[in-house]
Amino acid sequence: MIKELLKIKLDHIHVEGELIIPDHCQGIVIFSHGSGSGRFSPRNNFVAQYLKKLNLGTFLFDLLTREEAMDSTLRFNIPLLTERLEKVSRHLLKIPYTKSLPFCYFGGSTGAASAMIASTLIPRHIAAIVSRGGRLDLSYEYLPEVEAPSLLIVGEYDNDILEINRRALDLLQVPKKLEIVPGATHLFEEPGCLEQVAELAGNWFLKYARLKSNQKKQRIKTTN
């Protein structure tokens, strides 16, 4: 297993994140945090721990610096968050032990909007996307361009976000699914709800990461 703390230079700032690549890795999941959250988010770390058990690598990083996170306006600056997610993804594509892996995005809240848009900028590299309670209304105009299979997970009682995600589902033109977690609110804090999120996400990522790997092997075989 590879475990490494990365410090990535993006223009005038550095972002930090923890990269974990398990043995027999099936793909890497890059987390796009939302609403000022960062790599220490307990919810995203819970999901990441579950994904590692499935031999999926994870990269949790801070989209905003500590100082920037104190500015509430930046938390909703989707173009900025998208640009950083794209640049971090391109950085990982240059690392020898990650560049050949299928990449996936896991986005929460505003981070889900950034993940959707960033996927359209590097479409051939993104195998799958999972949105948890996503503010996908902030990415509506880009959703028809998304090429990665997308799973939208919403809590049963997160009424406004549920309506947003139903609209988003209609706009997506890829393999897609809306999963409603019974009894859950926006943060999935109710007993057993976050476990369901992790399981749903893990199954989705494994399915499409393996499909991406098989397609790549087939292309190599055809070329040879």
Rank of each mutant, 00 (worst) to 15 (best):
A184L: 05
T185D: 14
Q49H: 13
I122G: 09
E83C: 01
L93T: 03
I164M: 14
A48Q: 02
R167W: 01
S100Y: 11
G111K: 04
P191L: 08
I161E: 09
T120G: 11
A128T: 06
A198Q: 05
I220H: 11
D23G: 03
F188K: 05
R66P: 00
F103Y: 14
E18H: 11
F59G: 00
F103Q: 07
I20Y: 06
V154C: 12
T222I: 12
G192A: 08
E145I: 00
G27F: 06
S131E: 06
A112F: 02
T98R: 02
L136N: 13
Q215F: 11
G34V: 03
A148Q: 05
L81S: 09
I2P: 00
W204R: 04
L19P: 05
W204L: 09
K87R: 15
G108W: 03
K221P: 00
C104I: 08
K212W: 15
D23T: 12
E18R: 10
Q173N: 14
D11W: 12
L80T: 09
E83K: 15
G134T: 10
Q196K: 15
K7P: 00
V15P: 01
P191V: 08
E156N: 07
G133R: 08
G111C: 07
P144H: 09
K52N: 11
M116A: 15
Q49L: 12
A198Y: 00
G17W: 07
R124C: 02
A118C: 08
I95Y: 01
K177C: 04
F46R: 08
A201M: 03
H33M: 10
Q215E: 15
Y208N: 07
H14Y: 15
S35W: 12
A128H: 10
V174C: 12
K87P: 00
L206H: 04
N55T: 03
I122Y: 04
E195P: 01
K207A: 08
K217Y: 10
E83N: 14
Q26N: 13
R167L: 12
L10Y: 06
D160Y: 12
A201S: 15
P123V: 11
A112S: 10
E68K: 06
E190D: 06
I220K: 14
K207H: 13
G27C: 04
L10I: 15
L171C: 08
L10D: 09
R219S: 12
G202I: 05
G183T: 10
G192N: 10
I95W: 01
F205W: 04
L54V: 00
S139L: 08
E189M: 10
N44V: 08
